[in-house]
Design a binder for these strands. Structure first.
Lengths: 213, 213
DNA sequence: AAATGTGAAGTTGTTCACAGCT
DNA sequence: AGCTGTGAACAACTTCACATTT
């Protein structure tokens, strides 16, 4: 599970924001199939939610449909993409090129979704280079300069637990305001910084609970 | 975000189960530091939750503390591990050794948490072998046999969207009852199968929303 | 007629306040 | 005295029912 602790706009449920991403993927697929208009009923089904929820989610941000008709696929897609801030390519850095970090660098899936990993950082860049083909591996000391020069606002944190807080502090100091944290600890960050936690082991453990006979 | 749709015991909030995993990690760390007893207050702080929530979460499963004293670290750890079904090593398979799949195989972090990836499957095993050093890469056709022989109950699904549902069906048929799904689609599965969804792109997108100025 | 937008009702999850052990 | 366990109050989120628009 992932988990952020930033309700900037407290009126809007955090889960609603996650669902926007899902709606957007569905819309992109529909667009690819040449479908121009869709009802909340049909889109909700594709997204795996109730149609009332979809409509409620959208109205947090405005009115985008036409009664009696439905939603314009392209227009709604553009609107959501814009809301999420993914309508332009966003630079991201990755910190910690160990086991998981190098795995994430290998996975080029972020690029397809509007994020570009412009640099990776590791305490021992030479060792890190042996684990990946990714070229831009830098020592931690270069972080400030690169973040500032490229105007990076988001970071993927994949360092060992013991140093996670310390590195998070460094990230914040460099100007990062969004952290995707893979370390299984609660990071303490200033109010204006958002942390989303992802932990694959916890997801497996959670499954493990539910599949018990 | 992760997301399962299986409330076998509807009284217990799903989020409470996730939190159990977090408590367990904290307890393991405390145990390593030689701490024998801890109050709900202190453990809750380490886990990043309110103490009342921790106590409520635990009482869904029974009474484990001593009033006036707190909880026995080792005992509580063992209890939660047992509840989650992670007290013994659990075999897992991975399906789809593409970009993400091979990244996940590279990441050996599951092993450290009580899960062993005993085999990986791909439609084109020869091509998949070029992406990873993991040895046990099999054609999809071998799935049934391996799952049954090893008594595997959990699978990590990292195939392209277009075939995700189809492969999920095959997994279910083979006897898998827990799926960690990385494809950004809602899988349709029988009631007795649990799906947890993880989508890294969605997590980044969600961050992207919150860091907007 | 068809489908959206939305206040109100319902449900689920969290926190409080305090009773009850040790 | 200190800290857990828990019903009751509260808050957040979801669903319903229906008025409204095309």
């Amino acid at each position: 599970m992932s988990d952020s602790k930033k309700p900037i706009k407290p009126e809007i449920p955090r889960k609603a924001i996650y669902r926007l991403s899902i709606y957007m993927r569905c819309l992109t697929r529909l667009q690819g199939n040449g479908i121009e208009t869709i009802s909340s009923e049909a889109l909700a089904k594709a997204a795996g939610v109730k149609s009332t929820q979809l409509r409620k989610d959208l109205t947090y941000f405005g009115q985008f449909g036409t009664r009696g008709l439905g939603y314009d696929v392209e227009q709604l897609q553009a609107m959501i993409s814009n809301l999420l801030g993914t309508s332009s390519l966003q630079p991201v850095i990755l910190v910690g090129v160990g086991n998981l970090g190098s795995a994430l660098l290998t996975y080029r899936g972020f690029e397809q979704e509007g994020f570009e990993v412009i640099a990776a950082f590791d305490q021992i860049p030479e060792a890190a280079r042996k684990r990946t083909r990714f070229k831009e591996i830098r020592p931690m000391a270069d972080m400030d300069e690169i973040v500032q020069r490229a105007g990076v606002r988001m970071a993927i944190l994949a360092v060992p637990n013991l140093v996670a807080q310390e590195v998070a502090n460094q990230l914040v100091k460099a100007g990062i305001v969004g952290i995707l944290n893979f370390a299984p600890i609660m990071l303490e960050v200033p109010e204006d910084v958002t942390v989303n936690n992802v932990n694959l082991a916890i997801e497996l453990e959670n499954l493990s609970y539910f599949i018990q006979t």
